[in-house]
Nucleic acid binder design. Structure first.
Lengths: 251, 251
DNA sequence: ACTAACTTGCACACGAGTGTGCACAATCGT
DNA sequence: ACGATTGTGCACACTCGTGTGCAAGTTAGT
């Protein structure tokens, strides 16, 4: 590997080159990682991240845009597929599930969301994401109608704000390393808070609803509930935060 | 104006050229507007927006980077200057004020915030913004200690989330046209929600606190309270939202 | 072992942006 | 009205990233 910026992060000790299609997916994943930290990273960078040369990329994708488009549509599809099946009589729980589900897609969700608001792909992504958004809007409207969600913000706007915080949490996660457990809990509670619940209310709801319990993501499909110990692992950030003692889970 | 991409938006009928320094500030403002909608808009675009030629920019700034840096430091300074003086015995009110204050700086805040998380200026902006952030963190810690804010999220993290929603609202504003009143109310309530208050609680607090009332921004300094009529101006978004009737102010 | 598939290494053409130089026009200040 | 300041119109050099072409390796599969 000559001109290549060298391989910064992970795997690279393995076989320098493998089979055909594997590299394609490797490229996509590399793109996700790279674009996740720099929305307009170069092909060079992406290729390097995948352990390939820029030139080799053109053996899989005709255009940089094709790669990106692939990442985006794939991501949007994935998100849609995971969001749409959500359903529950209680709109609040659906919202929590919405958050939790997004959490499972952090990587995809982040890039996709980013492209949903800037660049030439906005329309593409927006369209691909529309069904999921529509569902959230519907859920919020229902919640408002049922009187379980706040009434001081127009439902559609509220839906966008909920989407906003959820993404904020995902961002917080990638920047400040939230572990899976914590992230899962945080998105839900944050979403519910914006939806209008007080913090105790939100936590009670989450605690009282088995569907919202943290599940370890296993290979495919199956997921198992993890029992919620009452451990209190202290402050996370490096500040001089020695005051408050958190009672509920330290998210 | 030849090669120039033509003058897209506003003023251009006025005197084609004026005095010296005026153009400098015109450029900065133009940059703010342009960068606000495209984080890496070209000098060409910025110059055009200011009614000048790209070439002319170099008469004021040695480098594109210099212009950006100017915008950024100026923005950060402005934000800091407006945030730091905030103070109130009730941490919740300080948080609401924090939101309201940011709202007054939408333009600046948006660009600045954007640059605070991407690009080579991250550090610069982060540093310039640090005091304001520190203040918010302190406020949140105090609020938690006083038992008026949520205890389920570590204070520093909570502070970042509050910053997050606030910016989300600003974004919502620039994308979906929130009028001044609505924006003012929305940032405060959104911030308080994330801080842990239930929506009714948040609204009551805002309604009961004169300092949080909407004030018309006048030329310099002076601001006047505006009485809160009970008008209900219907749905904002173009969807088929004909269901819920909002009681409190339609934000 | 041998072929077909895949990669690598340059080289080159392009386009978009930035930064500069210089002659010429417009304008402000006085 | 005049001169210094400031903006305009090119022209040019340079960088960075994309997209292609082609010859020469490297590897997977049989």
């Amino acid at each position: 590997m000559p001109t290549i910026t060298e391989t910064p992060s992970p795997a690279r000790a393995r076989a320098p080159r493998r089979d055909a299609a594997e590299n394609r997916t490797a490229l996509i994943e590399a793109a996700i990682r790279v674009l996740n930290r720099d929305i307009d990273g170069s092909l060079e960078t992406i290729a390097a991240e995948a352990g390939l040369t820029r030139r080799a990329v053109y053996g899989h994708f005709a255009t940089r845009d094709d790669l990106v488009r692939e990442v985006l549509t794939q991501g949007a599809a994935r998100i849609g597929a995971s969001i749409l099946p959500i359903q529950h009589t209680d709109a609040r729980i659906e919202i929590a599930l919405y958050g939790a589900t997004l959490w499972l897609q952090v990587q995809h969700a982040s890039v996709t969301a980013e492209f949903a608001v800037r660049g030439p792909h906005m329309r593409l992504v927006a369209e691909a994401l529309e069904p999921a958004r529509a569902k959230l809007r519907a859920t919020v409207r229902r919640g408002v109608r049922d009187g379980v969600l706040r009434r001081d913000i127009a439902p559609d706007r509220l839906a966008r704000l909920i989407e906003g915080v959820a993404l904020d949490v995902l961002t917080e996660a990638t920047h400040d390393g939230l572990d899976d457990r914590a992230g899962h809990a945080l998105v839900m509670v944050a979403a519910l808070s914006v939806a209008g619940l007080g913090w105790r209310e939100a936590n009670e709801l989450v605690a009282a609803t088995p569907e919202l319990a943290y599940r370890v993501a296993s290979a495919s499909g199956t997921a198992s509930v993890v029992n919620d110990g009452g451990s209190d692992s202290g402050g996370s950030d490096g500040g001089a935060a020695d005051d408050t003692t958190i009672e509920e889970p330290t998210r």
